[in-house]
Write a protein that binds this DNA or RNA. Structure first.
Lengths: 180, 180
DNA sequence: CGCAACTATGTCAGTTCCGACATAGTTGGA
DNA sequence: TCCAACTATGTCGGAACTGACATAGTTGCG
C-alpha cells in the first residue's frame, strides 16, 4: 500500500524528474503549503515506491557517499497516481492546535490571548500578500489538463484558507479587545 | 513533555470530570472537528498526565475489568493548560489530502474529478447547515471567560472553514464543468 | 588554495498513533 | 429471561514520522 506521502512524491515527479534532495526542498515550497516531509522519510518512501515499480532512477555522478539518483515516474506510477487523484480522500482528521487553544481560551488571560491572535493575524496577512503576488505572477488559469492548473487550484485554496483564518482572528481580537 | 493530545484531554476535563470512554466520545463530537484520538491513545496519555500530576481520578464501580475511573483536572493541570493556551502553536504542518489531489488533478479524468468535487461540496454544504443549526441553538456569544465562549469560537472557525472549502469546490467544479 | 555553504544519500533511536484484540459490567427490549 | 448494544479499561504490534547523526562530493568566494 502506497502511503499518501508516496503520492505526494509522485505528484512532484509527474512534472519533472528529481533527486531525493530536490524532493525535500519541493516539500518546503510550494508543496509544503499542504503536505510536508523530511528527507529521511522521503528516502524511505522512495525505497518503497522503487520496490513497487512506481518510480525508477538514473544514477549520476555527484555529491554524497552514493552519488546522485534522479528519480522519475514509471508508466505504472503515473497510472497509480492518476487513479488515486479521483478517489475520495480518507478523512485524515484535521488537527488544528490554534482551534484547540481557542476551545480552552476561556481559561486564559485575555491580554495574552489578544497578543497571540494579533501575532497569528499578522502571519496570515503576510501570507495573503505573498500568495497574491504569486497569483498575479502566474496569470490566467490554464486548461485543467495542464500541469500548472494544479498550482492555480492549490494557490486558490491556500489564499481562501488564509483569508478565512484572518477573518476568524479578527473576530477573536474584536471579542477579546472588549475584555481588556 | 505533555503532548498536544494531553492538552486536548485537559481542555475537555476543564469543563467537566469524565471517564476515558467519555473522552473518546467527546473526541468524535464536538472536539473531533479539530482534534481526534482513539481511546487506546487517550488511555496512554491519561497515564502520562496522571504520572505528571496534571489529572487524578475517582474510582467508581462500573463496567469493564477495572471498573470506572472518573478523571478530573488537578490545580497543576489547570495551570499547565492555562499557560499552554497563550503559547504560539508549533506550526503542525497542514496535511490536506484533497489539496494534494488538486495539485495532481491535471493528470486525471475531468469527469471523475467533477464527481469527486461535487461529492465534497455536498459534504461541506451539509456541515454548513448542521453548524448553522448549532449556532442558532447556542444564541449570543458570552463573555470570553465563560466556558461556552470556546464553543462559539471553534464553531465560528469551523463554519468559516466549511464556507471557504465549499467556495473552493465550486471554483473547481466551474473549471472542470467547462472541460467535460 | 582553503574553507564555508550547499548538494546529496542514507541510518537509527525514539515518539506518536492507529487498529485489532481482550475483558467484563450495565441496560433495555423482544 | 436472554441477548444485543452499550459502557468501560487496557495491551500489543506495527506504521508513519521526526531529529540527530554520518558521510562525502561540488561550488564559489576571499
Amino acid at each position: 500500500m502506497t502511503s499518501t506521502l508516496g503520492f505526494a512524491i509522485m505528484s512532484v515527479l509527474a512534472r519533472q524528474a528529481r533527486t531525493g534532495y530536490e524532493l525535500a526542498t519541493a516539500m518546503r515550497r510550494p508543496l509544503g503549503y499542504f503536505w510536508t516531509a523530511r528527507h529521511s522519510q522521503i528516502h524511505a518512501d522512495l525505497q518503497k515506491l522503487l520496490a513497487a515499480g512506481l518510480v525508477r532512477f538514473e544514477a549520476e555522478h555527484g555529491p554524497g557517499p552514493s552519488g546522485k539518483k534522479v528519480y522519475h515516474l514509471t508508466p505504472d506510477g503515473r497510472a497509480a497516481l492518476r487513479d488515486w487523484v479521483t478517489e475520495p480522500p480518507q478523512q485524515r482528521p484535521e488537527r488544528d492546535e490554534l482551534v484547540l487553544k481557542a476551545y480552552a481560551s476561556w481559561l486564559a488571560d485575555p491580554a495574552e490571548l489578544l497578543a497571540l491572535f494579533r501575532e497569528q493575524l499578522a502571519g496570515h496577512e503576510a501570507r495573503i500578500a505573498e500568495y497574491e503576488t504569486h497569483q498575479a505572477a502566474m496569470g490566467d488559469v490554464p486548461a485543467v489538463d495542464h500541469p500548472s492548473f494544479g498550482n492555480h487550484a492549490t494557490l486558490w485554496c491556500g489564499l481562501g484558507y488564509e483569508r478565512h483564518r484572518a477573518a476568524w482572528c479578527r473576530w477573536m481580537i474584536e471579542r477579546l479587545a472588549g475584555e481588556v
